[in-house]
């Protein structure tokens, strides 16, 4: 029995009567990479928002290391150990690349000096070390994606939530990011929960997959088994991703 880091229990969220997430439960074990996949509109990002405190769930609970963090605000969730990226990247456009990541690093650092050092280290790791002084607004989309990962990573999370960070990257860039994330997982034991449409990345990174469809969990298991699951294939019918 592996150690459970995060447990989502019966999470539900409706928008104007439409059930975006309906009674979804799953666990993320310590040290694993879990992928959350599903067609567009399956409720993946809403699920992230519930876990990371961007919005409270209507029902259900979020448990991090045995501690109930349901209804935490985003900043409380971050301090509790959940770092997240946004699907539509939201860099601090007017600040330098270094300061962008330093804001995240301050969550884990004692003072600004330490945060800047931390930020530099994280940026080096994500191949952005040579762009620290550039304003974030001047970065290309792939660089912005990496900056977003760096900011989330710098908060020192126990669990890193990545929302489609591979989208818009070229295959080589995608492979490089997979390599970096795999390294973080293997070397530092970082636990990662990712939403991803790029199956190439999912198959390389994820040890387990949870599939959402119309806000409900329809499958869960090892990658090879899940992608052959008839129910999963069914829901993707007509979708281009698989």
């Amino acid at each position: 029995m592996a150690d459970v880091l995060l447990a989502a229990r019966g999470l539900s969220k409706s928008f104007r009567g439409l059930k975006a997430v309906n009674d979804v439960s799953f666990v993320v074990n310590k040290g694993e990479v879990l992928a959350l996949i599903g067609p567009n509109g399956a409720g993946k990002t809403t699920c992230f928002n519930l876990l990371a405190g961007a919005m409270p769930p209507d029902h259900g609970a979020v448990i991090l290391e045995g501690r109930d963090i349901t209804g935490f605000r985003a900043d409380q969730a971050c301090r509790a150990g959940i770092g997240r990226t946004f699907q539509v990247v939201k860099p601090f456009a007017g600040l330098s690349v270094l300061d962008n990541v330093a804001v995240g690093a301050l969550n884990a650092a004692k003072h600004v000096g330490e945060a800047k050092e931390r930020a530099r280290a994280v940026l080096d790791l994500l191949d952005l070390g040579h762009k620290v002084d550039e304003p974030a607004s001047s970065l290309t989309l792939p660089d912005r994606k990496r900056l977003e990962v760096a900011r989330a990573l710098a908060t020192g999370p126990k669990l890193l939530l990545l929302d489609e960070v591979m989208a818009g990257l070229r295959p080589t860039e995608c492979d490089r990011l997979v390599e970096i994330l795999a390294g973080l997982n293997r070397r530092d034991g970082l636990t990662i929960l990712l939403i991803e449409h790029v199956m190439r990345a999912v198959m390389k990174l994820a040890q387990r997959i949870v599939v959402l469809h119309h806000g409900e969990k329809i499958a869960e298991g090892a990658p090879e088994a899940v992608v052959r699951d008839p129910a999963v294939l069914d829901c993707y019918l007509g979708e281009a991703e698989l």
């Binding site: 985003a74 900043d75 971050c78 860099p91 007017g94 804001v103 301050l106 900011r151 908060t155």
Partner: peptide
């Protein structure tokens, strides 16, 4: 730093703690 982050994007600032 918190102020600058909020000025640029309040959601991102909150997600950064």
């Amino acid at each position: 730093y918190a102020w600058l982050a909020i000025r640029e994007d309040a959601d991102s600032a909150a997600a950064s703690g």
